[in-house]
Amino acid sequence: MPYALCFLLFVIGLYCAVVKKNMVKIVIGIMVMEYAVNLFLIMLGYRFGGKAPIVVEEDIVGAGGQLSSLFINSSVDPLPQALVLTAIVISLGSLALMISICIRTYERYGTFDITEIRRLKG
């Protein structure tokens, strides 16, 4: 059920990116889709009563960094977290790129409306 709600969020973003005709609204739709994908990936690795994947002192048993089975059996998945961590920072870079395209278009045509831009182009 949380997966379905997450997918609903993705569909809202898709609707915004496809139907709206303001350029900033399209950027907002793409951002909403990014949030939905990040949330979905993190949810895939969650388990009930799980621990954050950070080792503290009482988790280490034995020499050579042997971890306790309690930690191994209750830690959440660290792999999606690592992927999402890079994805969030990349989304900020792509947001800056999209926004600079919007600013350039506004300076050229004086509007954010993509149908107007198409008409002005001829």
């Binding site: 990040n38 993190i42 799980g50 621990k51 954050a52 959440v76 977290q81 961590l85 969030i88």
Partner: peptide
């Protein structure tokens, strides 16, 4: 709440 403090700080 999903036990991902790294992502929470970055987000």
């Amino acid at each position: 709440f999903l036990r991902a403090p790294d992502i929470a700080i970055t987000q």
